[in-house]
């Protein structure tokens, strides 16, 4: 039991960060970023390259992942999403663009990093063992701690900084935010960069546990969308709740359902469909206009 909860919290902390980035971009720009999973994968490969290959300190490599994705996110917003949103009146345009970017990034990853599964040396050795009730390697605990710390920092940033306030204002009422002097173009770019950076940060954290490969992008995006649907799109608390709920479901599923075969996600998908039929806005979802 304790073990399942611990696994759930560990998974949930990673998932929540992925969902946070996705939901931030959605809330700000009404864009469903299908390329979120690919951004996560790039984050993993950057940390692999710097920490695994060039042997720079792990935290520094993690920062490189963040910086790479922040820049990539900013460029994608400035040159792709921004102009398309300004010129097109149809919402499908950004969805097609997002899907296109996902394919593009997959191709870039293949060219730059190759198709092999990559892993890195453990960041810390040893296993935590509480009387055989909770057994967890120290590196997982460290990664989980770092993830929760990052979530806290992100919330504090959104809540208390001037930029965070502007981003929230922009998400809640675009016109009113403009009338307060918020430059929509600049803050859309900042928000997109921040969302992409979160994806890169999780990628960098998780490469130490699961490694990274080209094929992880799509499934990661799908999981991110599930979390946002559970929690409610565009809401920070919803993304965090969705992340931890999915993490917990997965942990429970692996413990309980694995004896019946690999059906955890099948069960989760069915449950999610029923849930969405009853509560289409998700748990915390408020239809943000």
């Amino acid at each position: 039991m304790e073990q399942v909860v611990a696994n759930g919290v560990y998974l949930g902390s990673q998932y929540a960060m992925i969902a946070l980035g996705l939901t931030l971009i959605f809330a700000l720009m009404n864009v469903l970023n299908f390329a979120h999973g690919q951004m996560y994968v790039i984050g993993g490969f950057v940390t692999y390259t710097f920490y695994g290959q060039f042997e720079v300190p792990f935290l520094l490599a993690l920062l490189m992942s963040c910086a790479t994705l922040a820049i990539l996110g900013a460029l994608i917003e400035k040159f792709l999403f921004g102009p398309v949103i300004r010129r097109s009146a149809r919402e499908e345009s950004t969805m097609l663009l997002a899907a296109g970017i996902a394919f593009l990034l997959d191709a870039v990853i293949l060219l730059v990093f190759g198709e092999k599964q990559r892993g890195v040396p453990k960041i810390v050795d040893g296993v935590f063992n509480w009387d055989f009730r909770i057994i967890m390697p120290y590196d997982r605990m460290l990664i989980c701690g770092l993830a929760i710390l990052s979530i806290g920092a992100f919330i504090a940033f959104m809540q208390f900084s001037r930029t965070g306030r502007a981003l929230r204002a922009l998400a809640q009422d675009r016109t009113a935010a403009q009338l307060m002097g918020v430059n929509v173009n600049r803050y859309s770019m900042i928000g997109f960069a921040l969302g992409a950076m979160l994806a890169g940060l999780v990628g960098g954290l998780l490469v130490t546990i699961t490694g990274v490969n080209l094929g992880m992008g799509g499934p990661t995006s799908i999981k991110a969308f599930m979390m946002v649907m559970i929690g409610g799109a565009g809401v920070i608390s919803g993304a965090i709740a969705g992340g931890f709920i999915l993490g917990m479901l997965e942990a429970v599923g692996l413990a309980v359902l694995s004896q019946y075969g690999d059906i955890t996600y099948l069960v989760i998908f069915i449950a999610l469909m029923i849930f969405l039929a009853i509560r289409p806005h998700g748990l915390m979802g408020k239809p943000w206009g």
Binding site: R165, R168, Q172, D173, T175, A176, L179, M180, V182
Partner: peptide, 25 residues
Amino acid sequence: AMVPEGRRVFPFMSVKDNLMMGAFT
């Protein structure tokens, strides 16, 4: 400064944060 039609407050922000947004620039 413009007060748009329909009382467009930032609904999920506190009164304080709404006012502070006014001082954004």
